[in-house]
């Protein structure tokens, strides 16, 4: 397990992925992906779009689980892009035992697998479940909450691309306000998704008092790996919510995925933090704060925020409100100073 202090002490400024600094680390703390022995849980050849954040996030997350469990793992997948692009019959990208059942039941199926392994005395084999934001925050929410509440021995990973991408980019309860989706078009008085809606699943997960909750981003893959590894050091229900930009759904360049993810973190729009048993234990500090517009302007789903009105003036109300959301995150999760103890035990 990586100590959180290694994430904080060494500043990886060199590249967007922050992985170049890897060689500065102790051998055991180096990134999983840099290892010759990495598992390649998802091999190449899948059908994800170019620049897909979900494909990237899933590979890093699962390879970390593979390392943490010495390959003794089973994965349950909800319906969604990740499921579809990895298993076009008769091919599969998965190098691990993997089961897809339905869109809304991955947490419950994982509970069943964990129960079976326990009863067979094989609980050295660990179980993860994974799904998109729609599968997690909406249709699978009941099963997820049940799995949390029973504290079943499952790590659930949500790949949050802020919409139902596999069905053609519709709004989910993880879609941010003002974002244009196929069901929240950029039309009318309040273009895009409306303010005052949506839910924060990491906080809801924390309210179940489960052993471990974390948010992560493909902008900081070393941090993502460390959090997944840490999650695997606990028994019981664990939740990791990973922000994964979707070039197709967000209207962004395929080569901008990491940059966009980083802007989300550095603007405070997507806070990175960890919690144990319902209490926040650490948050990742913003390194170079940027206004939220830096994040939004890279994506066509927010293009209407930057359009000039008929009077030639930019209506900044939407932007201002989104900036307020980011500011509130910065205050709430203490993203700027070191008010919250950085290290965890």
């Amino acid at each position: 397990m990586t100590e959180p202090t290694t994430r904080q002490r060494i500043r990886f400024y060199q590249t967007g992925t922050h992985t170049v600094g890897n060689r500065l680390l102790d051998e055991t703390k180096r990134t999983v992906q840099a290892s010759m022995a990495r598992a390649n849980a998802i091999t190449s050849g899948h059908r994800a779009c170019q620049g897909c954040g979900e494909a990237l996030g899933a590979r890093y997350a699962l390879d970390s689980v593979m390392r943490a469990t010495d390959g003794q793992m089973v994965a349950i997948n909800a319906t969604g892009c990740l499921e579809v692009f990895t298993t076009p019959y008769p091919e599969t990208s998965w190098q691990i035992p993997w089961l897809h059942s339905l869109f809304g039941n991955a947490p419950a199926v994982a509970t069943g697998v964990a129960a079976a392994l326990r009863v067979k005395g094989r609980d050295g084999v660990r179980v993860i479940a994974q799904g998109g934001d729609g599968g997690t925050t909406d249709i699978g929410f009941g099963c997820l909450s049940g799995m949390f509440e029973r504290n079943d021995d499952v790590l659930y990973i949500c790949y949050d691309n802020e919409g139902y991408m596999n069905t053609g980019v519709q709004r989910s309860s993880a879609t941010p306000p003002t974002a244009r989706t196929a069901t929240t078009p950029a039309l009318g008085e309040q273009p895009g998704n409306v303010f005052g809606t949506g839910k924060n699943l990491p906080l809801i997960a924390m309210a179940h008092n489960i052993p471990y909750v974390a948010t992560a981003s493909v902008a900081d893959l070393h941090d993502l790996e460390a959090k997944v590894s840490k999650a695997m050091s606990f028994r019981g229900a664990r939740y990791i919510h990973i922000m994964v930009p979707c070039p197709l759904g967000w209207g962004s360049a395929a080569d901008a995925t990491i940059r966009i993810a980083r802007m989300a973190v550095e603007s405070g729009f997507f806070p990175l933090f960890e919690a144990e048993y319902g209490e926040i234990t650490a948050s990742n500090k913003i390194r170079r704060r940027v206004p939220v517009s830096e994040y939004l302007k890279l994506q066509r789903r927010f293009a209407h925020l930057f359009k000039k009105g008929p009077d030639g003036e930019e209506d900044t109300e939407g932007l201002d409100r989104l900036q307020k959301m980011a500011d509130a995150n910065i205050a709430r999760f203490n993203l700027l100073d070191d008010g919250i103890a950085q290290g965890t035990s």
């Binding site: 199926v109 509970t111 069943g112 079976a116 392994l117």
Partner: peptide, 17 residues
């Protein structure tokens, strides 16, 4: 479990394992 949907889903996972 928290619902019948979960009941059978848990059974699906258990059986598959």
């Amino acid at each position: 479990v928290e619902s019948e949907f979960a009941a059978l889903s848990v059974a699906i996972g258990a059986s598959a394992a």
